[in-house]
Nucleic acid binder design. Structure first.
Lengths: 124, 124
DNA sequence: ATATGTGCAAACTGTTTGCACACGA
DNA sequence: TCGTGTGCAAACAGTTTGCACATAT
């Protein structure tokens, strides 16, 4: 994986926000800086970087996939009403080995997502 | 929500397997019993029943959504290679209130998915 | 020079929806 | 009868891909 201006810009966008944007939101932001960017490139680089572990993808059943520029282990809370994704600081759980013992497989990781109604949506 | 033959058949399909089928797999199975079933109906009823809590949806980033006829709280292990979804018996974690305290929101639930390589795929 | 990345547009996949008809209460 | 559910086919959203050109090493 060599260098590319577009890829670098994407990383900078992702690292400069805590909003956990979707591919489209990233695309919009990147177009502000370079209107010629293409959505295909965005998707290609998102796949590449999350495969490589440089960024993280967050699957929400609310809407499309979100991305996180912060890769150290943490969980998320997703509002079922407005779709907002927020970071949590609860301590990571330690069940991977238990699952390996139970299944006989090799656990690479886990995703833990809390869902419900966020503070703002409760207050309207 | 009234009675419907198709809906009942869907429940029976889901409860008669532990394979956590996708919408399409459910559709295929239902067509064996009634070739006139439509995919639209399958999706409508999956949405209806999982909204009502009669079945559970399992979001996998591997492929499309899987469904589970068993609704008592448990977690899943998804093989990143073959996509198989298996049930786990590890004890449910208890972090919902911690998350509510941290976020100020109301937590309705959480999903915990372990991913990695399953026993069969390791062995080839 | 060669491999890798890009923009663009078309294609694809999973899912949703409008409609006219069928069924259940 | 009246509301709810269905089959069908068309529409849709998000994502992926083929291709010719551009950029990085």
């Amino acid at each position: 994986m060599g260098y590319s201006r577009q890829r670098e810009m994407m990383l900078s966008v992702l690292r400069g926000t805590s909003s956990h944007p979707t591919a489209n939101e990233i695309y919009d932001e990147m177009r502000k800086r370079d209107p010629k960017i293409s959505l295909g490139t965005v998707y290609r680089n998102l796949a590449l970087l999350s495969e490589k572990g440089t960024i993280r993808r967050i699957d929400s059943d609310h809407d499309s996939v979100h991305y996180d520029g912060c890769t150290h282990p943490h969980y998320h809370f997703i509002c079922s009403k407005c779709g907002a994704v927020s970071d949590l600081s609860v301590t990571p759980i330690n069940l991977n080995t238990a699952v390996e013992e139970e299944t006989g497989g090799k656990v690479a990781g886990h995703t833990l997502v809390f869902y419900g109604e966020c503070e703002r949506c409760i207050k309207f």
